[in-house]
Amino acid sequence: MERQIATVFGLGNLRPAPGTWASAAAILLGVALHRIGHFPLLALATVVVTIIGFWAIRRLFAGLDNKDPSEFVIDEVAGQWLALCFPSAGFWLMGLSSDRFPYPGWLAAFIFFRLFDIWKPWKVGHADRRGDADGIMLDDLWAGMFAGVATMIAAGAAHGLFM
């Protein structure tokens, strides 16, 4: 079961770039969660997938030769949903209907998440270099945090400049 969770039921086996495939799938599912239950449901799902991800990765890590297998993509789902929580929360706090989640918000969260996940600046790279089970999850959670903040900064700049 741990391997199924870590690979998001085989999604991590897609090639090339399994992390990007997982992030794209996470965006689709995250937008659906937002539309069904708005920010509270997406936030709850993010917490659940993060806890389950830590559990699965820790269980699998001990027997691994490769300390960050590319097929483990539950960390991308957790990080991408964390990034998506930022615009989702913005819409929720503004009282906008859950059926509205225009593409700039989720597209920016996707692009910024992939950028920070690949570039690995500061805390992202520090977590990635830990070389332990928690580092696998933490680097993507930091990337998700940075992506969420960058998404909100971009939204603020766009709305301040164009409205």
Rank of each mutant, 00 (worst) to 15 (best):
G156C: 02
G12R: 11
A147G: 09
V49N: 04
G19N: 07
G90W: 05
K120C: 12
H159V: 14
G105H: 00
W119M: 14
T46C: 06
F91W: 09
G63Y: 09
G90L: 10
I57L: 06
H159A: 15
N66E: 15
V73H: 04
I136V: 15
G79N: 02
L93P: 05
F86C: 08
D117K: 06
F72P: 08
G105L: 05
D140A: 11
L93R: 00
W106L: 08
G131Y: 03
F146Q: 01
L141H: 03
L60W: 01
I36S: 06
F101H: 06
A25M: 15
M152C: 10
L64R: 00
L14N: 00
L64Y: 00
G10N: 06
L93Y: 02
Q80M: 13
M152G: 05
A108Q: 01
P102S: 08
A45W: 05
A25L: 15
A6N: 07
G37V: 07
A157G: 02
A56N: 09
D65A: 15
D132P: 02
R129Y: 04
F39M: 08
L41D: 11
T151D: 01
A150P: 14
W122D: 12
V31E: 05
V149T: 07
L44G: 15
G160A: 12
W119G: 09
H34G: 07
R114N: 12
F101P: 05
G10Y: 07
A150T: 08
A154E: 01
A17M: 15
K120P: 14
I111C: 12
F112P: 11
A43T: 05
L29T: 11
R35T: 04
